[in-house]
Design a protein around this nucleic acid. Structure first.
Lengths: 161, 161
DNA sequence: GGATAATAGTTAAACATTAAACGATCTATT
DNA sequence: AATAGATCGTTTAATGTTTAACTATTATCC
């Protein structure tokens, strides 16, 4: 959104912050993405692996909720992880459910890759000092919660539970 | 990224803020997107229209830089805007360049639509108070600038000029 | 217990997006 | 002026994503 909009002072301040939110998010993501793209992973694949790595096996639906992707997409994401031997589907007690688990290969990949990605993220984020990061985190949390509550659209991937 | 990662305190704070940045950006976007999606516009189409509306005619390359999309994508975005009669390509003095201009129909659409979208954005962002928005804006600006400088990858859409 | 509703995952169609190769045009250098 | 290089836009191929329809399974309710 352009920066030349003139309107009520409050609205302009809100729009300004909105633009900066979009641009900063984009820039930070671009600056950190290379770390996993080098391994041929999409952000969704990395997100799924990271979720399994830190939280343990879970269903595709749970993964989808964690990484903010649709259920349909998770089918492909897990397909591709299985194809590369990084994760496997195991049938659950409830036979509608697939429990997705990291393979040893997937675990080894994350043991090597996660610290690199996390380090890169920290490096970029630590442009801000400790107190600034706390402030930013608190503001974004408040904003994110409120927006998520307002933005729910049934059936989509932004649903609130 | 999960919230169960344990590591150095500084790194955790940075990762926390990173996650919240991604989630808040996503949630705010989702909460506001309906306003232009109702008109059958993608975010890129809306972004292009808004840029032309507030900054006047410009080349596809300039639009691409404003809305953070690739040059190849702009071809399609402008195609679709032309198809709907919202914008036109006009050959520039430099005949490699297309100058893209809003049609009267495109202008009328934005006169009606922009206030609605801006109002929606303001409504969501104003979860935060005025001082908070200023703080958030300043932090995001600092972070975004730094990340953009680090994250440049030549040829891609995240290049810094 | 049997019908009905809800849920997890898959599939298919539509679409936006990107990167890379390419053609056309302009600029710079000699 | 001619050549070489840079720039803008288009095209093409590949890919990720979403929504909606569909199947299989489980839960609910009378």
């Amino acid at each position: 959104m352009g920066t030349h909009y003139r309107g009520p002072r409050n609205e302009r301040r809100a729009l300004d912050a909105f633009i900066k939110l979009a641009r900063a998010g984009d820039a930070v993501m671009a600056a950190t993405a290379a770390a996993f793209e080098d391994e041929g992973l999409t952000i969704s694949q990395f997100g799924a692996l990271e979720t399994l790595y830190h939280l343990g096996p879970m269903s595709q639906k749970q993964i989808a909720a964690k990484i903010l992707r649709s259920g349909g997409n998770l089918t492909l994401v897990v397909d591709n992880l299985e194809r590369r031997g990084l994760a496997v589907r195991r049938p659950g007690a409830d036979r509608r459910v697939n429990t997705v688990t990291l393979t040893p290969k997937g675990r080894r990949l994350m043991e090597r890759l996660f610290p690199r990605v996390a380090g890169r993220i920290a490096e970029v984020m630590e442009t801000l000092g400790g107190a600034e990061l706390e402030t930013l985190g608190a503001l974004l949390k408040k904003l994110g919660r409120s927006a998520a509550a307002r933005g729910a659209r049934s059936g989509g991937r932004h649903e609130v539970e």
